[in-house]
Simulated scan of single mutants.
Amino acid sequence: MAHDGRVTLPSFPALESLPVLDHLDLVAPPVAGLLAAWPQADQVAVVEIDPELADTAAMTAEYDLPLAASGNCVVVVGARAGEERIAACVVRADTRADVNSLVRKLIDVRKATFLSMERAVEESGMEYGGITPVGLPGGWRLLVDERLLAEPVVILGSGVRRSKLLVPGPVLADLPGAEVVADLGR
């Protein structure tokens, strides 16, 4: 750690990270709420970015980051017997969530689709393009691709477009409600 409190992660030298617990103002309120109570939060860092770079392709290009170290969170919905089922799926950015086959079976619905942007933003309390598996609504399932757990550090949304979270891959399995799934991303 540098004398000013900033940390540069060896795997991402272009990103200066800060201990997230000292900078909860850089994340969305639901994310801050979970982090403040989560025992593993002391392992999580936050980096400020230009909001125009929040999309994975722009960020990885600008900072020369590997796609495999970025986790994309998509929210899927389906229904069975009149009961709506929502799941957040976190996959490596070099893959896509297997929504039509694996996710559909896991949430036990006939048809799974992406939750509308408006609903995802409203129900999560997060900004579009910043939705993260950290601090999701309690009724949502959280499916995490097991390949992310092998990454030393995973870059995730922070709930807002102006920052990103840096989370040790293995710690993703400890998120509340996390279900680790093989081959979630294809």
Rank of each mutant, 00 (worst) to 15 (best):
V109N: 00
V91E: 06
A120T: 07
D145M: 00
V153C: 08
L115V: 09
C73M: 11
S116C: 10
P137R: 04
T95D: 08
G129E: 01
A79N: 13
E122T: 15
L149F: 01
G159R: 06
V103E: 03
I107H: 10
A150G: 02
L106R: 15
E83L: 14
R162D: 12
L149Y: 01
G139E: 12
G157K: 05
V109H: 05
V121H: 03
R85F: 15
E123W: 02
A69N: 02
A69E: 07
V75T: 15
E127H: 10
R96H: 15
E127K: 08
S158G: 01
G82N: 13
F114V: 00
G130T: 00
V167T: 02
T95M: 07
S101H: 15
L156E: 00
D174P: 10
V76D: 07
E84F: 07
G157T: 15
E127A: 15
I131E: 08
D145C: 01
R119L: 09
M117P: 08
R147P: 10
I107Q: 05
V75I: 15
E122R: 14
L102S: 14
C73P: 08
R161N: 12
R92E: 11
A150I: 04
E151G: 05
R162E: 13
V74G: 11
L142W: 01
A87E: 11
V99Y: 11
V75Q: 10
R161E: 05
P133G: 09
A81R: 15
S124V: 07
P170I: 00
L106K: 12
V171F: 03
A87M: 09
V76N: 14
E146G: 15
V77A: 10
V76H: 06
A68R: 13
D98Y: 09
L166A: 02
G139M: 04
M117E: 12
T113N: 11
P168F: 10
V153D: 10
L149S: 01
A93N: 09
D108Q: 06
R161T: 11
E118M: 10
V171R: 12
R161S: 03
P152L: 07
A81Y: 13
G135M: 04
V74F: 10
K164P: 12
V99L: 15
A93R: 15
A81N: 15
L148E: 00
I131H: 06
E83D: 15
G139A: 08
A112N: 06
G82H: 05
L102R: 06
R92G: 13
D145G: 04
A81T: 13
A79Q: 14
V90S: 09
A97N: 11
R147C: 11
V74E: 09
F114D: 02
G71Q: 07
E83M: 14
V109P: 00
E84G: 08
K111I: 05
T113A: 11
L143T: 06
W140Y: 01
R96G: 11
A81C: 14
G71I: 08
L166I: 01
K105D: 14
P137T: 03
A93K: 08
V144Q: 03
V77N: 08
G139S: 10
V74P: 09
P168C: 14
V109T: 05
R80C: 11
R147G: 13
I107Y: 06
T95S: 05
R96A: 13
V99E: 07
L142G: 04
V75M: 14
G78W: 06
A150S: 08
R80E: 13
V76Q: 07
R147D: 13
R104F: 13
I131K: 08
G71K: 04
W140E: 03
E83S: 12
